[in-house]
Design a protein around this nucleic acid. Structure first.
Length: 430
RNA sequence: GUGGGUAUAGCUCAACUCGGUUAGAGCGCUUGCCUGUGGAGCAAGAUGUUGCCGGUUCAAAUCCGGUUACCCACCCCA
């Protein structure tokens, strides 16, 4: 309860219970990533301030970057996301194989005010494809996210898809000034929370004409086929159609996918298709989001390199799993606890531990010869399935007593037969 | 960054409104029944600078100010 022992605002210790869940989820995420040919990458926690801020990638969000001077009085900042580090990497290693498919799972820092589902230090899982304009890239990413949420065990999730290109076309068609486009997108993005009427109110502030407002609202209400007839420029629609067709051909479960013309996303740098995944029945917001950003990397190296990426909010995924009570049961990697009886038999206990461990399973040795009951309790708490006793009786008869903690039964096994016994047990467990 | 709420035992909370003996309960924990066996049962035991700093008062968990953290809403986002 010493206040000096507190962690910083919005930052948390991650104790074993949390880490086991986290790693369980990460393991599922990476195995899907790798199945699609994405490779791991990491970048430093701290970057030059100029890299983080110089290209005006984040806009207003820039104020949320942790910024300070290091001991050499360099202006530096903490990694805010993985998009800028990726752009830096792609720009500084020109011989990287394109298309570059990498994933990055690390913490990022945002100096935000903590709230439900919102922290100052949190894990993100980014997966990006750099160097192709093909919509197949988008389809793969959406597919990957879908597979991940299925693998983790979610039943009701939805990836909403839209296209910035399409939204721009709607803006042109409705007569929205180019300079007001992005503000309009932000207003639209709130529809889920404040409803269409709320969005209309927000449109007021933008000073749009009545005709323009009505055109926008009615366009957004149209089914995709109607929109296509309505709009002079078909490029955005074509993009969405191609994406859906690729998804179907890739075998995506389409019940988790929908077209949502209202989706717009908060970052300015998206240029093409955009997407966002939510888990139904939770108020945590989106658990994954991304899109195409063809002009961003060019800001770093003056070459136009197209890219598309998506980010999974691991913290939020874990929160939702807790909420929906879908936490996985973990089997302990340690299958045997070798108890310590007294000094004279310690040597024997350690040798037995070695023998069992050599058969390929995890073994813990209790480090002190305390009351045997306590050692059993320890095994019970750590969910270790077998407890091994190597006391004077066992030592004399060259045997070990092994108790199955689940059934409560115990058997005495001769050392000479221990190996075959282990093999039999391990077979059964497979 | 703006506004509101909360902070009491390891955990969940009570007592605070209206200041007044020794700050309680459940769960967990320790010990014993059981000197070679966890979970169930019974019995006993220990919990604490009431987040921190200061003020008011004969007297503060309780009232006031500050501070730190957490929760909620906005902003925005994963």
């Amino acid at each position: 309860m010493n206040s000096k022992l507190q962690t910083l605002q919005g930052m948390h210790d991650r104790l074993p219970d949390n880490m086991k869940k986290r790693q369980w989820v990460i393991q599922r995420i990476t195995s899907v990533f790798e199945k699609y040919g994405f490779e791991p990458m990491e970048t430093p926690a701290i970057e030059y301030w100029e890299i983080l801020s110089g290209k005006d990638v984040y806009g207003d969000e820039e104020k949320l970057i942790y910024k300070f001077q290091d001991r050499g009085r360099r202006d530096v900042g903490m990694r805010f996301d993985f998009t800028v580090p990726l752009a830096r990497v792609v720009s500084s290693y020109p011989d990287i194989t394109m298309p570059f498919k990498r994933y990055q799972i690390q913490t990022v820092w945002r100096c935000d005010k903590p709230q439900y589902g919102r922290f100052r230090e949190f894990y993100q899982c980014d997966v990006d494809i750099v160097g192709t304009e093909s919509v197949i890239a988008e389809a793969e990413l959406i597919m990957v996210v879908s597979e991940i949420f299925e693998a983790v065990g979610f039943k009701k999730f939805m990836t909403k898809i839209n296209s910035r290109r399409l939204l721009q076309t709607i803006c042109e068609y409705s007569g929205v000034d180019k300079s007001k486009e992005f503000e309009l997108f932000r207003a639209m993005d709130k529809r889920d929370r404040i409803g269409i009427d709320g969005v209309k109110e927000n449109f007021e502030v933008l000073g749009l004409s009545k005709e323009t407002k009505e055109k926008i609202i009615s366009s957004l209400g149209q089914p995709i086929a109607q929109l296509e007839k309505l709009l002079p420029n078909k490029e955005g629609i074509a993009q969405v159609r191609t994406l859906f067709s690729h998804l179907e051909n890739l075998g995506c479960n389409m019940k988790h996918i929908m077209f949502d013309p209202w989706l717009s996303r908060g970052f300015d740098y998206y240029t093409g298709p955009i997407f966002e995944t939510i888990i139904e029945g939770t108020k945590v917001g989106s658990v994954a989001g991304g899109g195409r950003y063809d002009n961003l990397i060019g800001k770093f190296n003056d070459k136009d390199i197209p890219a598309v990426g998506i980010s999974i909010g691991l913290e939020r995924v874990l929160m939702v799993m807790d909420k929906l009570d879908m936490n996985p049961k973990f089997a302990s990697p340690v299958k045997f606890l070798v108890t310590l009886f007294d000094d004279p038999t310690t040597k024997y206990a350690l040798q037995v531990a070695k023998d069992i461990r050599n058969s390929g399973v995890g073994v813990e040795v209790y480090p002190e010869a305390i009351k045997i009951g306590k050692q059993f309790k320890y095994a019970s708490r750590k969910k270790i399935p077998f407890v091994v006793i190597t006391g004077p009786d066992e030592f004399k008869t060259h045997s070990v007593a092994i108790k199955d903690m689940k059934s409560g039964t115990q058997e005495v096994i001769k050392l000479a037969k221990l190996n075959t016994w282990l093999q039999k047990k391990l077979e059964i467990r497979k």
